[in-house]
Measured scan of single mutants.
Amino acid sequence: LDITFHVDGKNIHVHGASEEVVRIIEELIKNNARAEEIKETLERLLR
């Protein structure tokens, strides 16, 4: 699975993920999660 995301100002662009995963990533970023935390969360979800 190949998910890429980047933050452009306040806009979060996520590619290669389901809508549910996109929402989770957006929440994590809004809550100022570190990249490592986001990665760990995604790995748990995608197991």
Score class of each variant (00 low, 15 high):
L1E: 08
L1A: 08
L1P: 06
D2A: 09
D2S: 12
D2Q: 10
D2C: 13
D2L: 11
D2H: 14
I3R: 07
I3G: 01
I3Q: 03
I3P: 06
I3M: 10
T4I: 14
T4R: 07
T4D: 09
T4H: 10
T4N: 10
T4M: 09
T4P: 01
T4A: 06
F5K: 03
F5Q: 03
F5D: 02
F5W: 09
H6V: 15
H6I: 14
H6Y: 13
H6C: 10
V7S: 03
V7D: 03
V7H: 05
V7C: 06
V7R: 01
D8Q: 06
D8V: 02
D8M: 04
D8C: 08
D8H: 07
D8F: 06
G9N: 04
G9H: 03
G9K: 01
G9C: 03
G9L: 02
K10H: 10
K10N: 11
K10Y: 14
N11S: 12
N11I: 13
N11P: 13
N11F: 14
N11R: 09
I12M: 06
I12G: 01
I12D: 00
I12S: 01
I12A: 00
I12R: 00
H13D: 04
H13L: 06
H13Y: 12
H13S: 07
H13G: 02
H13I: 10
H13Q: 07
H13R: 07
H13F: 12
V14D: 00
V14I: 09
V14M: 03
V14E: 00
V14H: 01
V14R: 00
V14C: 02
V14G: 02
H15R: 09
H15N: 06
H15I: 11
H15D: 03
H15A: 06
H15E: 06
H15S: 09
G16Y: 05
G16T: 04
G16W: 06
G16N: 12
A17G: 03
A17I: 13
A17Q: 01
A17E: 01
A17H: 01
S18N: 08
S18W: 04
S18M: 03
S18L: 04
S18I: 04
S18D: 07
S18H: 05
S18C: 02
S18E: 03
E19A: 13
E19V: 12
E19D: 11
E19I: 13
E19N: 10
E20N: 07
E20C: 04
E20D: 11
E20S: 09
E20A: 08
V21E: 03
V21M: 10
V21T: 10
V21G: 01
V21C: 03
V21P: 00
V21R: 00
V21N: 03
V22W: 10
V22H: 04
V22F: 09
V22L: 08
V22P: 00
V22T: 03
R23W: 13
R23M: 09
I24R: 08
I24P: 00
I24W: 06
I24V: 10
I25V: 09
I25C: 02
I25T: 01
I25E: 00
E26M: 15
E26I: 14
E27M: 14
E27G: 10
E27P: 00
E27R: 11
L28I: 03
L28R: 03
L28V: 01
L28P: 00
L28K: 05
I29E: 00
I29F: 05
K30P: 00
K30V: 08
K30F: 13
K30S: 09
K30G: 07
K30T: 08
N31V: 07
N31C: 07
N31H: 11
N31Q: 11
N32E: 07
N32P: 03
N32T: 05
N32V: 05
N32I: 04
A33T: 09
A33N: 04
A33L: 06
A33I: 08
A33E: 04
A33Y: 10
A33Q: 05
A35Y: 15
A35M: 14
A35I: 14
E36A: 10
E36G: 08
E36Y: 13
E36L: 09
E37W: 11
E37C: 06
E37A: 10
E37H: 11
E37V: 12
I38S: 00
I38N: 01
I38T: 02
K39A: 11
K39C: 05
K39D: 06
E40T: 12
E40C: 07
E40S: 12
E40G: 11
T41R: 08
T41I: 12
T41C: 06
T41D: 02
T41L: 09
L42M: 07
L42C: 02
L42N: 00
E43S: 15
E43D: 10
E43V: 14
E43M: 15
E43R: 15
R44C: 04
L45F: 07
L45I: 08
L45P: 00
L45W: 09
L45E: 02
L46M: 12
L46G: 03
L46W: 11
L46D: 02
L46H: 04
R47K: 11
R47N: 14
R47A: 15
R47V: 12
R47P: 11
R47H: 13
